[in-house]
Design a protein around this nucleic acid. Structure first.
Lengths: 247, 247
DNA sequence: ATTTATTGTCTCAAATATAGACAATATTAC
DNA sequence: GTAATATTGTCTATATTTGAGACAATAAAT
């Protein structure tokens, strides 16, 4: 069976995949870009892909991310490898096959096309931070749709993909201040409140407004611009920009 | 070429390996267990291995570590995946082949036997913390010898293995207090000074004695035992034991 | 002009980290 | 035996960081 791959599959490293947790921020919520699989039954899976023989793993992750988001220069980082022996959730597989018996017999869907679901895979988890307003989510042929879901209200994910998101979120929390990466989730200009709400959605807890502002300004990585006239009945907040040169 | 593997190699996941940075502590120095390859020329490589088809990656790492150290219940943790496209250092490979032309033609050494050096591999890095006094380093057939080297005075390592050690050390530093794992590097009983010297060798800097002791005791994870009479001309230090039940 | 909501910043208290000091003690030197 | 010496365990005082409360500034609505 292992020797029956089509030539194109031979270009990839076998049994190794990359799964991407793409974080974006919208409507005061940290969200993840998740495609729905084009099978009967409701199955959601993280955007994933494989590694070409002459391609580095970071390079491959970048390629996959660019394909899915339509943007370049994405902040991304490896966070963990998932490689338990029985990664493939049996219940999930049985349900999928049962629900799709007819389609799987179809010539358009030979077994090879969802081989990646049935074989044992080790997967490298990457998380990415994107400015959601710049992203144009791209379906692939195996997707029915692709949408943003709040990180704490994900649809039913296949296999260990829900655990992957949790692990990615945890790594993001650990790295957020250390690596000054929150700004990748915001548009170029933002107010202090917007930044604070982003932090609050990432850590799922409130921060005192006065001290949050102090902490952030003390980092000395923000550039204060003109005020933003919101039209609201109050003092207008400043706009800030992240000074990338200082990192 | 890829289809010419021997049956036994087919039991492994292809092109995926595990490299282990095994940390131990001896003579006030943080050290790493490194085998020397059984080739002409001086080549050192991290202990490594492959993953069976029905084996989890953590499981595989544990097996490799147990084989190399002769002990069980080892603390280990994934720290990063190394998968740049040109991982194999060209200079290194050329030198190795040049120096070993005769042996490589020998029937005992068909190409398959160091296939793992020439093919493109993605490697999962694990670091392990062991009580060096319990370890009996085990050579494998591809090793000439295996020894402990101070982490800051390693021999010339092949490919990116030196970078792997640095990356493992960095992760260890980040996790040390958070996960309370330093004690895995010490024998069951130790003095405060021994613990402090361990910390100093890990971070490569001095800590003030008074505050270090306070910080550690405030963690509330140590059990103080009777004093240790060293025979030195001074007050005898207490012995401590790590209370594993509290973690 | 007054009210209301929110922003930016200040001050003070609490908690934590760092530095200095000294008594306790096990040996060696006398 | 007594003094000297080296190292340990701990205390106190100071500096720094963190957290809570307060209040003036301001943009619009009343």
């Amino acid at each position: 069976m292992r020797d029956m791959h089509s030539p194109s599959e031979q270009d990839y490293i076998q049994q190794l995949s990359i799964d991407c947790v793409i974080f974006g921020y919208q409507d005061s919520q940290l969200s993840v870009l998740v495609p729905k699989l084009n099978f009967k039954g409701d199955f959601w899976a993280l955007p994933s892909g494989f590694i070409y023989q002459n391609e580095g793993i970071d390079e491959a992750a970048r390629r996959i991310l660019e394909t899915r988001t339509g943007i370049k220069d994405i902040y991304l980082e490896q966070f963990r490898v998932f490689g338990n022996a029985p990664r493939s959730n049996i219940t999930f597989l049985e349900r999928l096959i049962q629900l799709n018996e007819d389609t799987l017999g179809d010539q358009r869907f030979n077994r090879r096309e969802f081989d990646w679901i049935t074989r044992r895979f080790v997967s490298i988890g990457y998380y990415a931070l994107v400015d959601i307003s710049k992203v144009v989510p791209q379906k692939t042929e195996i997707d029915e749709s692709i949408d943003w879901y709040p990180v704490r209200a994900l649809p039913a994910m296949i296999m260990d993909h829900a655990e992957m998101v949790q692990s990615a979120l945890h790594t993001l929390q650990l790295n957020l201040d250390e690596k000054l990466i929150a700004f990748n989730l915001l548009p170029e200009l933002f107010t202090m409140r917007e930044l604070q709400e982003l932090y609050e959605s990432i850590f799922d807890r409130a921060f005192p407004r006065n001290n949050f502002q102090k902490k952030i300004l003390d980092l000395n990585v923000l550039e204060r611009l003109e005020k933003k006239f919101t039209g609201a009945a109050n003092k207008a907040p400043f706009l800030y920009r992240f000074r990338r040169e200082n990192v």
